[in-house]
C-alpha cells in the first residue's frame, strides 16, 4: 500500500483509506473518491495530481494526494 501521489500517470488503483479532517473526507467521498473506488491517474508530475474517477477528471493538491492511501489493482 502507498499513497496516491506516488502513482505514475496511467496507473489504476483502488482507494483504501482517506486521512484528513471530517469535512474534507466527506467532500472527497461525495465526489466519488471513497474507499473502494477505483481511480485512474491522468497526470502526475510536479503539480497537482489529476485523477479520473467515475468519468470525471479531478485535480488534487499533492498534500491531499498524500493523504489518500491506495493499493494497486490485482
Amino acid at each position: 500500500m502507498y499513497t496516491l501521489d506516488l502513482v505514475p500517470p496511467g496507473g489504476r488503483v483502488r482507494i483504501v483509506d482517506l486521512r484528513g479532517g471530517r469535512e474534507l473526507v466527506s467532500r472527497l467521498m461525495q465526489m466519488g473518491l471513497h474507499p473502494g473506488a477505483i481511480v485512474e491517474v491522468v497526470e502526475n508530475s510536479k503539480g497537482p495530481v489529476l485523477v479520473r474517477v467515475r468519468g470525471v477528471v479531478i485535480a488534487l493538491g499533492r498534500g491531499l494526494a498524500r493523504k489518500i492511501v491506495v493499493m494497486p489493482l490485482r
Partner: peptide
C-alpha cells in the same frame, strides 16, 4: 504551516 488543499473538478 500547510497550504490549503486543492480540490477542483476539471471539465472537458
Amino acid at each position: 504551516s500547510e497550504p490549503p488543499e486543492l480540490v477542483l473538478e476539471i471539465p472537458p
